[in-house]
């Protein structure tokens, strides 16, 4: 069986790298995207195969296309039943509400520990 695939969308290379490392370490396959727009492009390219995509992890505050718009777009696509986990630093209720309203499945408040990330991912992705 194919490895569980996770798409990581974040504009900061540091976070992308750290998150990907942590996920790969836990045995997931990881793709990366720089912002919402890039993320949609990546999804478009996976449309046919789906490549075992099991989860999208995205930042909210990003240039070009922010996370909320990105989630909205994903929810309009073939991938609408895919769980989406988002990161935010502004742990204000309003951001969480917004995320939930557009259909995100969960969130993490930055900065987080690798264990927290995996813990959240585990809640949204079926174990192999």
């Amino acid at each position: 069986m194919m490895e569980e695939h996770i798409l990581v969308v974040d504009d900061s290379p540091t976070i992308r790298s750290a998150v990907s490392f942590c996920l790969r370490n836990a045995g997931y396959e990881v793709s990366e995207a720089k912002n919402g727009k890039d993320g949609l492009k990546k999804l478009e390219s996976m449309k046919e195969s789906r490549q075992g995509l099991a989860l999208i992890v995205t930042d909210i505050n990003m240039p070009q296309m922010d996370g909320i718009t990105f989630i909205k777009n994903v929810k309009k696509s073939n991938f609408r039943f895919l769980p989406i986990l988002f990161f935010t630093t502004e742990s204000k209720k309003s951001i969480l509400e917004k995320g939930r309203a557009v259909g995100a499945s969960g969130w993490l408040v930055k900065p987080f520990q690798p264990e927290q990330l995996l813990w959240a991912v585990k809640k949204l992705v079926w174990p192999k």
Binding site: F81, I84, A104, S105, K122, K123, L124, V125, P127
Partner: peptide, 14 residues
């Protein structure tokens, strides 16, 4: 619930 990508069975497993 499914629209937000959450699977209740997974929650039960957790």
């Amino acid at each position: 619930l499914f629209e937000s990508g959450i699977d209740p069975l997974l929650l039960l497993l957790n």
